[in-house]
C-alpha cells in the first residue's frame, strides 16, 4: 500500500490511517467501519444468495440454480426498464453536478441581490414531498407543451437531485483558502479558467460524492417518475413497484446482483489501473 509513496518524496510520508493517532484509535475506527459495512451489506448478500435460490419465494433455501439469470436475459421489458433507469440516472447526474457545483460556487464567491433568498429557494426541491413535485412539474410540462418522456423525466430528476450536490460542495467550500483562486487570477487566468483549473480539482471529492448521491437518488426514484415519465421512458422502479403486487420476482435479485457485481468490478479495475499508472 505504501510503495507508491516512496515515489513522492516531496510530501511527508502518510501512514495508513492516521498520521499519528494511537493504535487503539485506529483499531476503533477500523472496527466501527467494518461493522457499518456489514450492516450495509447484509441485505445485499441475502439478495445475491436468493438470486441463486431455486424458489420463487424469498424464504427458504431450496437449491442452487442460475435459471433466474437465464430468464432475466430473456426478459426484454425488465432489461429495457433497467436501461431507461441507467440513461436517466446518468444524464441526471451530469446535469446535477454541473448545476449544483456552479450554483454553489456562485453563491459562495459572488455577492448579488437576493442572494440569500436564492440560497433558500434551492432547498425547496429537497423538502418538497415527491408527489407535490411530480404533480406540479407535470402541470408545468403540459403547459409548456413538452411531451412526457426522457426530457421531462430528466428535468424532473435533476431538479430534486442538484441540491444534494450543492449542499455537499458548499460544505467543502467553507474554509477554502482564498489564496487558491487569487494566485490563479494573479497568474493571469480568467475567473472561469481559475474556477476550472483550481477550484474544481479542489472540490473534486465533494463533486464525486454529490454525483454518487444524485445517481442513487435518480436511479431509485418512484413517485416523481410516475407523473413525469412517458410510455418510452418507463424506469425500473415503476416496474418493480408493480411486481410487488404479484410477488417480487427473483429475476430482480439477479438483476441487482449483476449490476452491483459489474460496478464493483469496474471500481476495482479502475483502482488497479490507476495503481499501474502511478508505479
Amino acid at each position: 500500500m505504501t510503495s507508491s509513496n516512496e515515489f513522492a518524496p516531496v510530501l511527508p510520508a502518510r501512514r495508513w490511517w492516521l498520521p499519528r493517532g494511537p493504535a487503539i484509535q485506529r483499531v476503533f475506527f477500523g472496527t466501527w467501519t467494518a461493522g457499518v459495512f456489514a450492516f450495509l451489506y447484509i441485505p445485499i448478500l441475502l439478495l445475491v444468495f436468493y438470486s441463486f435460490n431455486d424458489s420463487k419465494l424469498n424464504l427458504q433455501w431450496v437449491g442452487f440454480t442460475t435459471k433466474w439469470y437465464g430468464l432475466l436475459l430473456q426478459n426484454e421489458v425488465l432489461i429495457r426498464a433497467f436501461q431507461n433507469s441507467l440513461i436517466v440516472a446518468c444524464v441526471t447526474t451530469v446535469l446535477s453536478v454541473v448545476i449544483g457545483t456552479s450554483a454553489a460556487w456562485l453563491l459562495y464567491r459572488y455577492r448579488f441581490p437576493a442572494q440569500q433568498t436564492l440560497g433558500l429557494l434551492i432547498f425547496i426541491p429537497m423538502v418538497m414531498p415527491e408527489v407535490l413535485m411530480g404533480v406540479s412539474l407535470l402541470v408545468l410540462f403540459v403547459n409548456l407543451g413538452l411531451p412526457l418522456g426522457y426530457t421531462t423525466l430528466i428535468i424532473a430528476h435533476t431538479t430534486f437531485c442538484f441540491p444534494f450536490v450543492l449542499v455537499g460542495v458548499q460544505a467543502r467550500l467553507q474554509g477554502i483558502d482564498p489564496a487558491l483562486e487569487e494566485a490563479a487570477l494573479d497568474l493571469g487566468a480568467t475567473p472561469l479558467k481559475a474556477f476550472w483549473l483550481v477550484i474544481v480539482p479542489y472540490l473534486m471529492p465533494a463533486i464525486i460524492a454529490g454525483a454518487l448521491m444524485a445517481f442513487t437518488l435518480s436511479f431509485d426514484e418512484y413517485i416523481v417518475t410516475v407523473f413525469t415519465s412517458g410510455a418510452d421512458s418507463q424506469t425500473l422502479p415503476l416496474k418493480v413497484y408493480g411486481m410487488v403486487r404479484v410477488g417480487l420476482n427473483p429475476q430482480l435479485n439477479a438483476l441487482s446482483t449483476l449490476f452491483i457485481g459489474a460496478t464493483a468490478l469496474l471500481v476495482i479495475a479502475s483502482q488497479v489501473f490507476s495503481r499501474n499508472k502511478s508505479t
Binding site: 424469498n58 430482480l252 449490476f259 460496478t263
Partner: peptide, 21 residues
Amino acid sequence: GLLIMLVMIPFWTSFLVRTYA
C-alpha cells in the same frame, strides 16, 4: 475512492428489493 464507492453501491439496487430483503 474504493471505500466511498462501497458505501454507495448497496443503494444501486431497487428500494423495494432492498426493503423486502
